[in-house]
Structure formats: C-alpha cells, structure tokens
Simulated scan of single mutants.
Amino acid sequence: MQSSVIEMVYTHRHEVIEQWKEEMINIQEGEFTNGAAQAAVTRTNDEFAALIIDTLEMDKEEARLRLRSFSERLMYSGWPLSYFTKGLQLFRRVLLRFMTTNDTIPSSKVFETFQEVENWMDGIVNQLVDEYTGSWEHTLELQKLALKELSAPLIPVFENISVMPLIGTIDTERAKLVMENLLEGIIEHRSQVVLIDITGVPVVDTMVAHHIIQAAEAVRLVGAECILVGIRPEIAQTIVNLGIDLGKFPTKSTLRKGIESGLERTNRQIVNL
C-alpha cells in the first residue's frame, strides 16, 4: 500500500468510520442483526472498523491472527459472515468515494490506488471467509463425533437384558453405527435379549425397516434375541401399508411391555410385594 494512501486513511480515519457507520444502518436493519442489542451492534462495528484500518500496518501473520480471533469470537456469538462481508464492501465504497470527492489522490494515481484498496479489502474478505469456514468445519466435526457417541448407545437395564433407544432419522451411515454398537454391546454386556426402541424415530419407511431387520438378524446370529418396541399406531399402519414383514422377531408397543417380555424370556418376572 502506498504510504500516501496509508497516511490519508489514518488522517481522515474518524470521518471515514463515521460515514461508514451511518451507512451500515441499512445493513443493521436488514435480516442479519434482527433482535441484536443496539449497544452490541455499535460496539462490534467500532471494533470491526478499527481492525480494518489497523491491518494496514500489520504484517500478514499478525493480521491473520487478529482476524481469526475476531471472526471466531463473533461466529460463536451467532454473527453471520454475510454481515461482515457486506460491511467490508461498504467500507471500500465509502473509502473510495471519500478519496475521490476530497481530491486526496492525484488523477495519475487513481487506478493504482483503487487497485491497492481492492487488494486490501479482498485480503480481509478472504481471510474472514477462510476463518469462518474452518471454524464451522471444526465445530461440525466435533458435533458429529459427539452425536456418534450418543446416537446409538446400548444400555443394560437388567442382567442379560439391554435396550438400544433410537432417536431421529436412521440413514445408512447411522445404521452402520447402530449395528456396530449393537453387536459390540451384546458381547460386552452378555445380553440375551436386546430391545430396540423406535419410539423416537419419526418415520419408519422401507429403508429404515430394512436396517432394523438387518440389525435384528445380526443379533440373532450372535446368539441373542431382538424385540422391537415403541411401535406407535401410525408406525404400525405405515408398516402394514408398505408391506414390510417384521414377523421374524417379536414386537411390542411400549418399552415396559418389551422389558416384561425380555424378563419372561430369561425366566424372570416382575411381581408385586
């Protein structure tokens, strides 16, 4: 960046930022910050404008670290990336308009100066996009790992009886995880009866039923018995309408009835004292 341009930006820093903040109201009133406290918006705009100008005198590594810290903090606070990219575009327009209307650059240097300002703004935009993207990908991977750990647990409820509660949509990837946890859990807990509870599964279609049948068959092959529980009336009607055959293993309407059936199959029962 030309030293004369840097000097101009710092000399008229206050005027440029004030013009930018006035025009940012149009973005603030849009969809990006609806519901945000005005004090938080004002504080964030002040910090963002100061950071933009300060990057002029930072080396690439320092600017990268400052932008990363700024973007990560605001991303986790719920600020959309589009708010800042639009803000940067607006800052560029305000700065170039200020430079041309106040005759702060000679006519022979106009194109060169505009190109330098474009490169400066583009560098910040690219850095923010990279940081937002990287942070979201990292967060998404952590969430996926957490969901995998919690999405299909096999829970021992009585000796030799375990329950696997399923919640949410069952796709092919999750069905593989269900199968792995099911078989490993049967061996670990020495389960003789496994209850697969589909109370929390919103839709049971042909694919979901196929995955459940495969899981039940795998349970049988390792020497245990599978009982499908949590079949609501609407699910039962869907299964019948689709012509799905679940006759290979027992089914119960509730988890309680499934546990009672499991106890009977292991020669036990619940009695009142």
Rank of each mutant, 00 (worst) to 15 (best):
S3Q: 11
Y10K: 04
T11P: 00
T11C: 01
Q19G: 01
W20C: 04
M24L: 12
M24Q: 07
I27Y: 07
G30V: 04
F32M: 13
G35Y: 12
G35Q: 14
G35W: 12
V41G: 09
T42L: 01
T42H: 01
N45G: 03
L51Y: 12
I52M: 15
D54P: 04
T55H: 05
L65N: 12
L65V: 14
R68L: 15
S69P: 00
S71I: 11
R73Q: 11
L81I: 02
Y83H: 07
Y83A: 08
Y83V: 05
T85R: 07
L88S: 14
L88P: 05
L88H: 11
L90P: 04
R97W: 00
R97L: 00
F98D: 02
T104L: 13
T104E: 11
P106E: 11
S107P: 00
S108C: 03
S108M: 07
F111P: 01
E112L: 13
T113E: 13
Q115W: 05
E116F: 01
G123P: 03
Q127N: 03
V129C: 00
V129E: 04
D130L: 11
D130R: 10
T133D: 09
G134W: 01
A146D: 03
A146G: 00
L147H: 10
K148Q: 15
E149I: 00
P153N: 10
V157I: 14
M164R: 08
P165C: 06
I167R: 05
I167H: 06
G168S: 04
L177K: 06
M179Y: 05
N181W: 12
L182K: 00
L183D: 02
I186N: 08
D197N: 14
D197T: 06
V204I: 14
D205H: 02
T206Y: 08
H210K: 02
H210Y: 00
H210S: 04
H211R: 11
I212R: 12
I212S: 09
A218W: 11
L221Y: 10
L221T: 13
V222W: 05
E225F: 04
C226W: 10
C226P: 06
G230I: 02
E234P: 02
I235Q: 08
V240K: 01
G243Q: 10
G243T: 11
D245N: 14
G247T: 07
T251K: 10
R256T: 15
E260M: 14
S261Y: 04
T266K: 05
N267M: 09
R268G: 09
Q269V: 13
